[in-house]
Design a binder for these strands. Structure first.
Length: 919
RNA sequence: GGGCGCAUAGCUCAGUUGGUUCAGAGCAUCUGCCUUACAAGCAGAGGGUCGGAGGUUCGAAUCCUUCUGCGCCCA
């Protein structure tokens, strides 16, 4: 035989992937079939494949491959996200290494560098997905900054502006001083940290020896203070309201004001008000018409308004000011303090609240739309309880307007123009900078001419907004824009709404909610009312939320922690099929996944090992060896034996039973359950039982006797059906075995074969064989316990009862038990044969002739133990049945079952007593 | 501070409508086997008061209350 004793994934996987691509199996064009569409959550173009990607793309591939095998037009659109902050940071870093500063080279040249970088490295993660076996339609690969996608962003921006949902305004925003850009609330990560609370005395203007003490975490911002606030009801301070105090170090007078926002219990009960550098202070400042003094630069340094420490970084300034306050005697107390501090998701810099001019999207109506979509189940969540989180987030009080502008260059530039004035400023209207939002500069110019009344304006008089839009402002259009839906609705009409979105719950708000919003906002306009009503406005019907992949300490796996195995190394070690198996079995929908990669005790880094992936690899090998066995048998035209008839028919019934269970699990996205039941069917039922049942004997020359043709054909047919059923999960090994099983004609490939549909099955027949399996196990167990080799043939007697007769009436069952347990004979008997050991299986009594001296005491002990167990069991059932309320209250079926249990138990007790008496 | 979720075998997890031997799976452990498909294997075994307490019910891992421990989201 030419097949290697071990399955070799390396060679197989690359070969089949190339073949599938060559045959164009992944490609989809609209046709008459029902579409099944998935759009990939586009990974960052800067990214490399990590465990989260592996999990979520394996799941998508399972769903897509199954749909394809069900005869649907499966379309999985891949692509990448331009990830503006992350990518820009990366390119800035790269240029810095070359000694180039972003500010020196200007926007255009910087973007050239960025594109160059994208062209060079941007495809890496997609190539890695191919290694995993992802059957994406690569011809459809998209990038969120593709020209048509960028045009969609501009179109949508202008549309929303016209609808009055977009506005520009000066707002308190989260500022990242490192990236020098504003962040949305979702991009701020709060971390518990140690901090200090500074108690500082502000002297009274009219009596500098006395003063009021405030507590603050940010002493470096005192120069920006504009007031001290106290609670209006606070006795301690009531009389001070209206007095002026002096800011220490700069001696600037500020008033003491009253505001009920102040928490009387916190710190000293007096609060310094710094409207430029704190969200809450800003609101108080607005209530009291206080001025705003901004003392920080865009990169977090003190500016000239601070008067002192100008040019110092905010944290250096904090240290220095501590010293200055101590020296001046105004620092009265330092207190250790735990607080949560916001960090930038991308740069990890501590976020600075800052007043800036930004673009906002009004979210009120959008939030309602998204809530309604999920509430009405037009979009279904799996697992369902994710709805709770979604609901919570979209409550009116929680929804803030979406700040969509970013002070970056890499991304879609905001389509808004201003009119330059001679003095270098911008033309104002109604006290604000006049802004002209349009799809292009010419249209903006026309608007500007009309508004200013100056028909002589030229393109040179306009300047475009410097900012780009938030990355999510392009990815929220993804389900529409990957089909170029804003420009040409041909494909959109076929593929939209997509079938299912598979993504982690961590971007539920960033992305999932916003896609739902954009879907409902534009699909009707694009599809036409009739079609939108027929097919739905939602961007996807189902959302399958995957959990986060965590290490055994429950930390999210990340590159920086070093707690994640290398995805590609895992594939190298276990094969893509093995890794897919491991990922899928690790957890179920929504629950976080604890991935079992062990750690190197020395380096504390995760090793590229995994027990679950190993199990997957072993499974491949198991199936491979089953193939070798089947292919190795000579085939004859002899008639089919009774055993083989029984075996084939049993396996067919059992397979149908398994398939029937699969359907429901698939529909609920319980993929790990589906995989597990296939695993158990193939390993246990097919390999351990079926193949052993039909395995031909060896002749004197040590060669296998032939297998009859009917059984051989049935085996091959079942084997290939199993491979088809497993294909979505483990595509490579199944395709390989599929082709090894038979000569295949052109186009007969597992990937495009029909997914096996469940047929009828005889549950009673399956039960009888299960009973026989139990008998066989009992015999093997007896051999094990008494040290009798499996090779030594034994004689078995069955007590002749009605139930035993009914069982062994099944054609081939007697022979099957004899073969599997290595028995010379299986006989029904009326009396107990001498010198045998008795055991019970089901309600049948068996006697096994062992040809050895029987240890009577050991037998007595064993039987007594079993008797005790059964007595206890019967007692509990009797108790239940003697309860009048149970008998009258429980459904008849349940009571009937209890009666049966009782009868069986009593029968067992009778048999055991009899056996004990005979000893 | 507000909210959501979790706790089942040594580990990672299933357990769908409260009801069949429902207390399960895989891994790990132990015993015996290099039996001509597979030692990446075969045949077996042990192991859990379902986090604690209380309640509803004829019946609770499952529903309710409460406590403890842990995780996450929002502020």
């Amino acid at each position: 035989m030419s097949l290697s004793t071990r399955y070799n994934p390396k060679e197989t996987e690359s070969r089949w992937y190339e073949y599938w691509e060559k045959k164009n199996y992944f490609h989809s064009e609209p046709d008459d079939r029902e579409p099944f569409t998935i759009v990939i959550p586009p990974p960052n173009v800067t990214g490399v494949l990590h465990m989260g990607h592996m999990l979520n793309n394996t799941i998508q591939d399972v769903l897509i491959r199954r749909a394809r095998m069900q005869g649907k037009n499966a379309c999985w659109v891949p692509g990448t996200d331009h990830a503006s902050i992350a990518t820009e940071a990366k390119v800035v870093q790269l240029l810095r290494k070359k000694g180039i500063k972003k500010g020196d080279i200007g926007r255009e040249e910087f973007l050239n560098h960025a594109w160059e970088w994208k062209e060079k490295y941007g495809g890496i993660i997609l190539d890695q997905l191919k290694k995993l076996g992802a059957s994406c339609d690569w011809e459809r690969t998209r990038f969120t900054m593709d020209p048509s996608m960028s045009r969609a962003v501009v179109h949508v921006f202008v549309d929303l502006y016209k609808k009055g949902k977009l506005y520009r305004g000066l707002r308190m925003t989260n500022w990242d001083p490192e990236a020098k850009t504003v962040l949305s609330n979702e991009e701020v990560i709060y971390k518990e940290e140690n901090s200090q609370l500074f108690h500082i005395r502000y002297p009274f203007e009219d009596n500098p020896t006395e003063g009021i003490i405030i507590a603050t975490q940010r002493p470096e911002t005192i120069m920006a203070d504009v007031a001290i606030a106290v609670h209006p009801e606070e006795e301690k301070y009531k009389h001070l309201i209206g007095k002026n105090v002096l800011i220490p170090l700069i001696n600037k007078p500020i008033p003491i004001i009253a505001d009920s926002y102040v928490d009387r219990e916190f710190g000293t009960g007096a609060l310094k008000i710094t409207p430029a550098h704190d969200q809450n202070d800003n609101e108080i400042g607005q209530r009291h018409n206080l001025p705003v003094v901004d003392i920080l630069t865009e990169d977090g340094k003190l500016n000239e308004h601070a008067q002192i420490l100008v040019g110092e970084d905010r944290f250096v300034a904090r240290k220095k000011i501590k010293k200055l306050l101590e020296d001046s005697g105004t620092l009265v107390k330092l207190e250790d303090y735990r607080t949560s501090i916001g960090h930038s998701e991308r740069t990890d810099a501590i976020v600075e609240p800052r007043l800036t001019n930004q673009w906002f999207l009004d979210m009120k109506d959008f939030a309602k739309t998204a809530l309604h979509a999920v509430e009405s189940k037009e979009v279904k969540f799996y697992p369902e309880n994710m709805w709770n989180m979604f609901y919570q987030w979209l409550q009116e009080d929680n929804v803030r307007d979406w700040c969509i502008s970013r002070q970056l260059w890499w991304g879609q530039r905001i389509p808004a123009w201003y009119v330059k004035t001679a003095d270098g400023g911008r033309w104002m209207a109604d006290g604000e900078e006049a802004v002209f939002v349009a799809e292009n500069v010419e249209a903006a110019l026309a608007q500007a001419r009309q508004k200013t009344g100056n028909t002589g304006l030229t393109l040179n008089d306009l300047e475009q907004d410097e900012d780009v839009v938030d990355t999510w402002f392009s990815s929220w259009l993804w389900p529409i824009s990957v089909f170029d839906g804003f420009e040409n609705q041909e494909e959109l009409k076929y593929y939209y709404p997509t079938s299912v979105l598979v993504t982690g719950w961590d971007i539920m708000f960033f992305w999932v909610a916003r896609m739902i919003m954009s879907g409902y906002e534009w699909s009707e306009e694009l599809l036409g009312k009739e079609l939108a009503e027929k097919k739905g406005r939602m961007p996807f019907h189902d959302v399958y939320f995957t959990g986060m992949v965590r290490d055994n300490k429950r930390r999210k796996m990340s590159k920086s922690l070093g707690n994640s195995p290398e995805a590609l190394e895992l594939i190298e070690n276990y094969g893509a099929d093995g890794v897919r198996f491991g990922m899928l079995l690790a957890g179920s929908a929504g629950n976080d996944i604890i991935f079992d990669a062990p750690f190197d005790p020395e380096t504390k880094q995760a090793l590229n090992e995994s027990k679950l992936c190993e199990q997957g690899r072993n499974f491949c090998n198991k199936m491979w060896n089953a193939l070798r066995l089947v292919k190795g048998w000579p085939v004859s035209d002899a008639p089919q034996s009774k055993i083989n008839q029984l075996a084939v028919s049993w396996l067919e019934h059992k397979f149908n039973q398994t398939l029937a269970g699969l359907e429901n699990n698939f529909n609920q996205y319980r993929l790990s359950d589906v995989l597990m039941s296939l695993y158990q069917f193939i390993w246990d039922d097919f390999c351990s039982w079926y193949l052993e049942m039909i395995k031909p004997a060896y002749n004197a020359e040590g060669n296998s006797e032939p297998l009859d043709r009917a059984t051989f054909e049935a085996t091959v047919a079942l084997f290939e059906k199993m491979m088809a059923a497993l294909h979505p999960f483990m595509p490579f090994v199944t395709e390989e075995i599929w082709h090894q099983l038979r000569q295949r004609a052109e186009g007969q490939d597992c990937i495009v074969s029909r997914y096996p549909a469940p047929g009828a099955f005889d549950g009673n027949m399956i039960k009888l064989v299960d009973k026989a399996k139990d008998v066989i196990t009992e015999i093997r167990n007896t051999r094990n316990g008494k040290g009798i080799s499996p090779k030594e043939p034994l004689k078995l007697f069955v007590q002749n009862t009605d139930s035993a007769k009914a069982m062994y009436q099944l054609d081939g069952l007697t022979e099957m038990v004899g073969k599997m347990a290595n028995l010379t004979s299986v006989e029904l008997t009326g009396s107990e044969p001498e010198g045998t050991v008795a055991f019970i299986s089901g309600t049948e009594k068996y006697f096994l002739e062992l040809n050895i001296q029987i240890d009577v005491e050991a037998e007595r002990e064993r039987l007594t133990k079993e008797l005790d167990y059964n007595r206890g069991f019967v007692t509990s059932v009797e108790k239940k049945l003697s309860n009048e309320r149970f008998v009258s209250g429980a459904p008849a079926q349940v009571v009937e079952n209890e009666r049966k249990k009782l009868a069986d138990g009593l029968e067992k007790i009778r048999i055991l007593k009899e056996a004990l008496a005979k000893l």
